[in-house]
Nucleic acid binder design. Structure first.
Lengths: 159, 159
DNA sequence: ATTGATGGTTGTATCGTGCAACCATCAGGG
DNA sequence: CCCTGATGGTTGCACGATACAACCATCAAT
């Protein structure tokens, strides 16, 4: 049996719809108070920089489906805060390769750690088997790609 | 074995962290293009009104942790668009009970249907057993309450 | 050398949001 | 019968994130 061909599956899908959406709503609501020094957007961009070990503003824009002007301003703010630095690419003078500074790495680590703790608390008591399955489902769900993402259905604070 | 006491669980938690977060990011990115006539916020509020069969602006604000001024403006917009109507409460002249209009019900149904289809497509091919388990995990995760919600960790478009 | 593509910045506008101040109404006690 | 405080709602103001468009600088290819 596959999705959309039975009422039991229908109920499950409705629940998934509703709950994913509820998560998105709360996520949005808590986006601002991530860290006094670091908005959620900034945190994300820093995390990406750390993962990649530096990249261009254009790469960030493409990866997060943001306008390049948006990224440009975010980057300016992060640079102003001393969390990232721009390094000009000798191979291409148009390009500014963005890198975390020591301060940026530090704050990113702090925020990541505190978020990790929060997730751990929320998932405390879950049997390992359930954690693994849950993670697997999420991976599978997200792997379908952004193209078919229906988005949240119940997230007022996201508008 | 419970969360946070083993490396296998650690890996699963990291994955959950990352994937929930990826969902929130895409959700936010697609929030604007939900419907030409209906932002995501509006859609949510309409949905709530339908569920409850009418409620007060204050209830909406409390439920979604929004400022009452924010709700007030959203409600004004929805009323202007003819999707909801205000009915004064004879028991309390301060109160305006909000109700969907026929047009509001119509548009809400349209958007809900299209979102349902999108979710179905994304979940097509999942065995019913997996759907049920996934739904159960999401319920369990969200049931922990907003208080301990760590929020997304990778959602720039959410800021 | 010209032309088109690419990386980035800036001006402008919009939208959602929160805070604070405010008004109207209700409920309780002197 | 008024005061006083609580509650529902609106409005003024400011902020932050975003997109679009116009623009400049640089590169690549012909």
């Amino acid at each position: 049996m596959t999705a959309a061909d039975g009422t039991a599956a229908d109920v499950a899908i409705e629940t998934i719809h509703h709950e994913m959406t509820a998560f998105a709503r709360r996520a949005r609501a808590s986006a601002g108070r991530l860290h006094p020094e670091l908005s959620l957007v900034s945190y994300t961009l820093l995390g990406h920089l750390e993962e990649r070990g530096g990249c261009r503003a254009t790469d960030l824009a493409a990866h997060y489906a943001l306008d390049k002007s948006t990224v440009s301003r975010q980057v300016s703010a992060l640079e102003g805060a001393g969390l990232i630095e721009r390094r000009s690419d000798p191979q291409d003078q148009r390009v500014q390769v963005l890198h975390l500074t020591a301060a940026g790495t530090e704050i990113l680590a702090q925020v990541t750690a505190s978020r990790r703790v929060a997730f751990r608390e929320r998932l405390a008591g879950w049997p390992e088997e359930d954690l693994r399955r849950f993670a697997g489902y999420l991976l599978r769900y997200n792997a379908a790609g952004p193209g078919t993402d229906p988005g949240p259905a119940d997230s007022p604070a996201t508008g």
